[in-house]
Nucleic acid binder design. Sequence first.
RNA 1: UACCCCAUAGUGUAAUGGUAGCACCAGUGAUUUUGAUUCACUUAGUCUAGGUUCAAAUCCUAGUGGGGUAACCA
Length: 569
Amino acid sequence: MTTDKQSPDNPEQEERQKNFVEQIIEADLTANTHEGRVHTRFPPEPNGYLHIGHAKSICLNFGIAQSYHGKCNLRFDDTNPAKEDTEYVDSIKEDVQWLGFEWDGIYFASDYFQQLYELAVQLIKAGKAYVCSLSVEETRAYRGGWDEVGKDSPYRERSVEENLDLFTRMKAGEFDDGEHTLRAKIDMGSPNMNMRDPAMYRIKHIHHHRTDDQWCIYPMYDFAHGICDSIENITHSICTLEFEHHRPLYDWFLDELDIFRSRQYEFARLNITHTVMSKRRLLELVENNHVESWDDPRMPTISGLRRRGYTPEAIRQFCTRIGVTKQNSTHDISWLEDSLRSQLNKEVLRRAAVLRPLKVVIENFPEGHVEMMEAVNNPEDPSAGTREVPFTRELYIERSDFMEDPPKKFFRLGPGREVRLRYGFFITCQEVIKDEEGNISELRCTYDPETRGGQAPDGRKVKGTIHWVSVEHAVDAEVRLYDHLFQTQHPNDVEQGQTYLDNLNPNSLEILKNCKLESSLGEAQPGERFQFERLGYFCVDSRESSDSKPVFNRSVTLRDTWAKMQKKG
RNA sequence: UACCCCAUAGUGUAAUGGUAGCACCAGUGAUUUUGAUUCACUUAGUCUAGGUUCAAAUCCUAGUGGGGUAACCA
């Protein structure tokens, strides 16, 4: 028998300081509190789609189970049929699995309705619960306020027999919604509002998505949650900070019922700059068409991030990087973006794509000639090999890679300037062609045949390297550029008379319809990810892309020092 | 107004009574056929006031600041 602390067994968690929850668990392990057993659970209510904040909780709960050879259940907290639906159950299961986790057990609070009912009866018999017939308004008035203790309900001293009778009839459907509630008999004078005789059951003649019409009374969260944890032998019940005041109640039920003591621990929920994270607000964004759907790539939902091109690994890495504490905090969205970049940089194939094309004609390159150039697929991964790309007389380059009157720090193409076409040749701009309105429509350039592959035999240097696509071989595509959903860091911080909606970024989506891609991209499959060199990471949209019309989403830009310099001026 | 939680570089986190460390951001430089990547360096921090102690970011008290809480929601 050893008293050594068990060391985490999850590679993504290694080499990291333990967060306070892990420290609690290790202390429990050392003290042998649960005979070395660690069992967590992720308990979403199926009333909306999961977002990155839930990912933090998922990574915490499932991650702990992995690290300490424990278990983690997925449990749907479906005690309020008015809001819940199987549509959400399905999406939540999909999202958890996509994130890379497997639950040990999958349960629903509704699985336990009968047990919950019996335990409620037990509390009534013990004189610890009573049927109250106050209306909602009366209940609120009796509860008192922060500066005023509550008053006992006139029904508080009903006999056990009467309570039993009434509760049985509540269950039998003899009463209308709101006529009675079952309340815990605790303390109307408690400074903690949750202890002022909280409701345990309410009458709702509503169809439940899993129990159909079997029940017309439904347990409240506070009564159900701890008992569900206890039934499942959950050792560490981890939830967010707003449930802190509920902990005494959580403990009260388990103590009075004398059943397995699960313990509740609270951590700070995740906030990220330039977005909002409450289910209510996300729902509002969808319903008012500020975004297209729950899986709009601008949404912080798991499904939105997935469609945007985020990987489960990147999200998991983000969640471990941000840590777990009790401090309210807001993480910079660049952390999330950086997690994606660092993974994709190592793994993803490089391709050339011209988003805003400018035609270049190489006057001294023979017409009809195609020169195949060798291009590296991923400089970070030699095993990714190389590919051949066609170089021809007519090419597209990025409009932003040319300036008619460039500043000295501009390393790209300008009249009379020479640049390298990546994996191509050096070219020099000889002439700028404009249309009637004065817009640049074409560049006439010459190339140096001696610079094939991008090196000059005379050793001369060129300041810039730009990407290009052969006109003849280019694949047409639509590319969607996403920016932050909100233009302010903290969208919920608003002036008088404004709402977070006033902080929406009007340019969060830019659709480019005339993009020219390297030919190999024509075969890209939905969900496939690439780095478009010098631009960013992109993925094929899983919903709207088709063979005839590929649609790419920009997942995240590359770091762009040039853009930063320009902003500063 | 009552109660609860929290307070460490710009941001986020570590140090669990014994040298305040790490990451991101920012800045500078090197390398570079992606203004990417990579590498090196730099800036900058314990909310305040008391107390306990040989020793306090850490323990205690008060204050200040931030957050949360009065659904028959979760």
